[in-house]
Nucleic acid binder design. Structure first.
Length: 1083
RNA sequence: GGGCCUAUAGCUCAGACGGUUAGAGCACCACACUGAUAAUGUGGGGGUCGGAGGUUCAAGUCCUCCUAGGCCCA
């Protein structure tokens, strides 16, 4: 067994052992599920989309997904772990398009949906092998053979069942949603795609126009009647679709008189007062003055009607009104009035929905105008801009702001409504989104979609959220709770190809409307007489097979119309939100299983999933089952690159995953990630030194404890066993300490506080190696059976407790220690297996404090540790029975204990210190409290005979101050140091000649040990030793012959006077200017 | 453009209710210690607590504005 192990090599060996031994399966089989699965711990694996290799974020989540189930298994639970794959959606389609060199939906149709979807299917499985390798290498136990895939027919059948259930509950409806849309590729884009590359947003010049719409003459207000309300837009092509104008109700508006461009007439214009100056060129007179005719607040204007700029939608219900949209309207640019075209903007859509104005869509999927916008039909919207502006200009000149008769308008350009005024035309440069694939500018466009009416059961979602425990806990009412409060209806369909079908069939003749929704293969077969089947004849709900199911419309007596499936597929988030039931084909199979495996006990993903998977799980669980989908949830932070920025392949700002596995190992990475603030919701910067620190701080100490044990147990031929019976105080201490360690680990793991568990472990290992083992070395050298048993017990217990956190390293150590099959098949230890002695643990803390304070005194007085001193007096601290341990540790001949109030204690120059409690005294004294504080610091304070305390001239009352004893001035002969836990230590600093000689003797021991090491001798080799050197060194060597011979295992010991022993002897500088000459040989 | 969060030592982060010398770990330097341990111990340097105002006897902490960064939504 190596002293300095190569952990990656050990890990590979353990992984191979597990594979051969079937340890993972055994860890599940060993645990009984119990009646109704009562003994099961239910874990849901959030399905990743495997369109690339796993990165740190996946690894991080994977480690947590491993640790919790390992822990629960050791606690006796049965924990099934089933891997899942997210397989549908746009990323797969984009990859398939890239591989086939196609760009548009037309090209997909040309290629054939069946071939295209085959390509998608192939692309999503491409990396599954690599994923399995990475996940296995990270020592995550999960069942890959029995995985679930969202594209499996059984999964998809459960998904359409969910859709139908929601439909039957009245929670699904059809509507419009506005999306960024690429007219060139003919596809909507997800928001994710808008952030795909940094150059998606590019500067672009667009024509911006300021247009006045004529307010209707209501005969109520001569200033407003017939005035032109000014709007500003950078998308003139949306003007034909204008449906309303929006104002801010708290914004101040004015009506000013100004000229009609290109004519000698005047008109009244309405705009925000704050924007007036921006239109001075058009509206001010020669002196820069405005003719203000009236003032209105936005609220005054709401409800006024106007004539739309184009006549295409004249008479549209509820349209062409001034409406309030306080969030959408600002006075930072434009006119303070915003034109809305309903389906061409998110906010527009929201406002028109609220106002019950039906959206219009005169733009086709190719981005070209369609009927009824006939003048521009066939024109790409961006190209139409110029024509629209020209027509507006012509109409402005022709009518000069007047309404006109029908006969006149025929001669004007296009369908611009007489009375509409183009006030200004400019060009405007702004940041504008472009398609990440074809680089063409995007438009926002309404597309038809189906929605889950989340707003209807939002309150219930909030109630059920109360039953979930979150880590970190602020997520519950913070990020997740707030998100739920503001939940909007969920758009669940996409006009794409590769996904679960929307199971809705509609009549193709609106004269005979009918809608059928299907929730199973059986229902489909019943109505269509057959199942959708792929080309091999297997039931398959994918397009195009499902689209092939058609039948005559039963509601059409003519028998001509046909029931056809709507072309859309479901959002992939509907798939992943369905995994709790769909992974086991519920409700078609395993209904009983589901009853006992829902909700999950535990899930974990990164914090962004509060809007993703956590959210969709919660929506579907609430709406379908009126239960939460999970009981505890860890949402961790984001992994950043070594420079603190987002990880980026091109920047190469993070260490390569496989290199880290090969160099430092999977356990090191696990520890690094798990011990970090990332599990408490913070972000984490991944650096190579950080990962190596994990090895140094935890893995090496654990390994070395075992190495030490093994080294000496083998040497002594001792076969140690599990025992808590030792009477030795240090053994009792470490056993009691281990008990407390086990208890805190249990608490931390039960509460999912994994980072706390790491910290607790690191502290414990420090105590074990740097205190217990170091202080007990003599006993191991002396073959003390109780010491070996104790160390065995502590190590074995520690391995079990650390097993989830370092599964590979602990496996190696535990198996080496016990010869057992696997630490992961063992039970989690109970604290009760170990003796309780909290007083002893506390006493040892006091011991360590005393030693630490004494070291500081030695340091301050420049008294090296090897130099023995006569006496250490510990005052007012309970180090119960460990005097000799302290004496040995700090190298003094004698340790004495004194009560703090003893007479002698008072002689060590102790003093009193006054501290003013500002919190208590502040409110009473007010400003004067500062004087009292100043007094306490400067020494201007006193305690009167009756006990009254005065500071800075102010009398303080009980509770406003504290008086404490502190170490006062020391002398040349003693040094005094305070203990943080109360009391102090007094170190006798007088160095007698005897002490100095012994110090030198110890220097000699050290020098000989080094010489032994340099000569390559084994620890147990006996030597023949000859010493020479300066007079002082020689005297010390003579006086302490026994000490030196014993410590250095010298069987022959001789001294040579007069300097060097021989020319080849080692010359070593000792303390106090003394020199030693050392010659040794193995005997 | 909107919402939420963050800003404290070179780095990563703690700093209940406002309370008077702002802490820890890592890194760095020095010394000590070292026959399991590339370990450990002791000490040291290093901070205008993002900026500017305000409230208060007292502000890292509360309020306002600003700046920078992150996340989400547009």
């Amino acid at each position: 067994m190596p002293a300095s192990p190569r952990f990656p090599g050990i890990e590979e060996r353990i992984l191979a052992y597990w594979a051969e031994d079937g340890t993972f399966q055994a860890s599940i089989d060993n645990r009984d599920a119990g009646a109704n699965g009562d003994n099961e711990f239910v874990f849901y694996d959030g399905p990743p989309f495997a369109n690339g290799l796993p990165h740190y974020g996946h690894l991080l989540t994977g480690y947590v997904k491993d640790i919790v189930p390992r822990y629960q298994t050791m606690r006796g639970k049965r924990v099934e772990r089933r891997f899942g794959w997210d397989t549908h959606g746009l990323p797969a389609e984009l990859e398939a398009m890239r591989l086939n060199g196609i760009k548009t939906t037309d090209e997909i149709l040309e290629m054939g949906i069946d071939r295209f979807n085959e390509a998608c299917r192939a692309s999503v499985l491409k990396y599954t092998g690599e994923w399995r390798d990475y996940v296995t290498r990270q020592a995550r136990w999960v069942d890959f053979d029995n995985d679930y895939r969202t594209m499996n027919p059984t999964f998809m059948e459960s998904v359409i069942w969910a859709f139908k259930s929601l439909y039957d509950k009245g929670l699904v409806y059809e509507g419009f949603r506005v999306l960024p849309y690429c007219w060139n590729d003919e596809t909507p884009l997800s928001n994710h795609e808008l952030r795909m590359d940094d150059d998606v947003y590019q500067q672009r010049q667009d024509p911006a126009v300021t247009v006045g719409y004529a307010l209707d003459d209501l005969g109520t207000d001569p200033v407003l009647d017939g005035a032109h309300i000014l709007i500003w837009t950078t998308t003139p092509w949306t003007l034909p679709s204008n449906l309303a104008v929006m104002v801010g109700s708290a914004i101040d508006y004015v009506v000013v008189e100004g000229p009609v461009p290109g004519t000698d007439r005047k008109a009244r214009y309405l705009l925000a007062e704050a924007r007036l100056s921006a239109y001075a060129r058009e509206l001010a007179d020669a002196d820069g003055e405005f003719t203000i005719l009236g003032r209105y607040s936005g609220a005054d204007l709401v409800g006024r009607t106007y004539t739309p700029p184009f006549s295409y939608y004249a008479g549209h219900e509820n349209a062409f009104r001034v409406v309030a949209a306080d969030d959408a309207v600002t006075t930072t640019d434009g006119t303070g009035v915003v034109h809305t075209a309903g389906a061409f903007g998110e906010v527009d859509k929201e406002v028109t929905d609220r106002e019950n104005i039906e959206a219009v869509m005169p733009v086709g999927k190719d981005g070209r105008f369609t009927h009824p916008v006939d003048e521009y039909a066939g024109m790409l919207v961006f190209d139409a801009n110029l024509h629209i502006i020209d027509d507006l200009k012509a109409a402005t000149r022709a009518f000069a702001g007047r309404a006109a008769s029908a006969s006149e308008r025929i001669e004007t350009a296009g369908s611009v409504t007489p009375g509409t005024i183009l006030l200004r035309r400019e060009s405007y440069e702004h940041s504008y989104p472009h398609c990440w694939r074809c680089r063409e500018p995007l438009i926002y466009k309404g597309v038809s979609s189906w929605f889950v009416e989340v707003t209807k059961f939002k309150d219930r979602m909030l109630e059920l959220n109360e039953e979930i425990s979150w880590t970190p806990d602020h997520i519950k009412h913070g990020q997740f709770g707030k998100w739920l409060e503001n939940a909007r209806d969920w758009s669940i369909t996409r006009n794409r190809f590769w996904g679960s079908p929307v199971p809705v069939w509609k009549s193709d003749d609106p004269t005979y409307p009918r809608i059928d929704v299907y929730g199973s293969f059986e229902e489909l077969e019943r109505d269509f007489g057959r199942l959708p089947r792929d080309k091999d004849g297997n039931p398959d709900l994918h397009r195009p097979f499902v689209d092939e199911l058609t039948r005559p419309n039963p509601d059409d007596p003519t028998g001509k119309s046909t029931m056809r499936r709507v072309a859309d597929v479901l959002d992939v988030w509907f798939d992943s939100g369905s995994m709790s039931f769909a992974q086991n084909h519920v409700p078609f199979e395993n209904a009983d299983w589901f009853e006992h495996h829902f909700p999950a006990d535990f899930i974990v993903e990164y914090i962004g999933q509060t809007r993703g998977w956590f959210y969709t799980l919660h929506i579907l669980a609430t709406s379908l089952f009126d239960r939460p989908a999970f009981q505890s949830c860890i949402s961790h932070g984001i992994v950043l690159g070594s420079d603190g920025n987002k990880m980026s392949k091109s920047l190469r700002n993070y260490p390569d995953v496989s290199e880290v596995f090969d160099r430092d190992g999977a356990d090191a990475m696990r520890w690094f990630l798990m011990s970090s603030p990332i599990l408490r919701g913070g972000n984490l910067v991944v650096t190579e030194p950080g990962i190596r620190d994990s090895v140094r701080q935890v893995m090496i100490p654990l390994w070395n404890s075992w190495y030490f044990f093994q080294l000496y147990a083998n040497a002594a031929g001792i076969d140690a066993s599990w025992s808590t019976g030792s009477e030795d105080p240090l053994d009792r201490y470490v056993l009691a300490k281990t008990r407390e360690y086990v208890a805190s680990m249990t608490e931390a793991m039960d509460g999912y506080h994994i980072a706390d568990a790491c910290e607790t472990t690191q502290r414990f290992l420090d105590v074990l190696t740097n205190w217990y083992i170091r202080r007990s070395r003599d006993r191991f050298w002396a073959d003390d059976r109780a010491a070996f048993d104790t160390l065995y017990t502590v190590l074995e217990t520690t391995c079990r407790v650390v097993a989830p956190l370092l599964p590979l390293t602990t496996e190696e150590v535990w198996r080496g220690l016990t010869g057992g099959r696997s630490v992961h098949l063992a039970d989690w230890p109970s604290a009760d297996e170990l003796p309780e002695d909290h007083a002893l643990v506390e006493a040892m803390d006091a011991v360590r404090e005393a030693c630490s304070a004494t070291s500081a005194l030695r340091k301050a007085r420049q008294l090296r540790n090897r130099l023995p001193l006569s006496t250490l007096t510990v005052v007012g601290a309970s180090i119960g029975g460990f005097e000799s341990l302290v004496a040995d540790e700090v190298n003094v001949k004698q340790v004495r204990l004194l009560d703090a109030d003893s007479e002698e204690a008072a002689t060590y120059g102790v003093a009193q210190k006054l501290t003013v409690n500002a919190r208590a005294a502040g409110p009473r004294l007010g400003r004067d409290v500062q004087l009292a504080i100043k007094g306490s610091k400067s020494g201007d304070w006193s305690v009167a005979a009756d006990g009254t305390v005065t500071s800075g001239g102010l009398a303080l009352v009980e509770g406003e101050y504290t008086l404490e004893t502190v170490a006062g001035a020391a002398s040349d002969d003693v040094a005094v140091g305070m203990l943080p836990g109360g009391g102090f230590v007094v170190l006798d600093t007088v160095v007698t000649p005897e002490l100095a000689a012994e110090g030198l003797a110890r220097d000699l021991v050290r020098a000989v040990q080094q010489a032994r090491k340099d000569a390559g001798l084994d620890v147990s080799d006996r030597i023949s030793l000859t010493l020479g050197g300066s007079a002082g060194a020689l005297a010390a060597a003579r006086e302490h012959e026994q000490l030196i011979a014993r410590e250095t295992l010298a069987t022959s010991y001789s001294l040579v006077d007069g300097g060097a022993v021989s020319p080849s002897a080692t010359e070593v500088l000792l303390s106090d200017g003394e020199v030693a000459s050392i010659s040794l040989s193995r005997v």
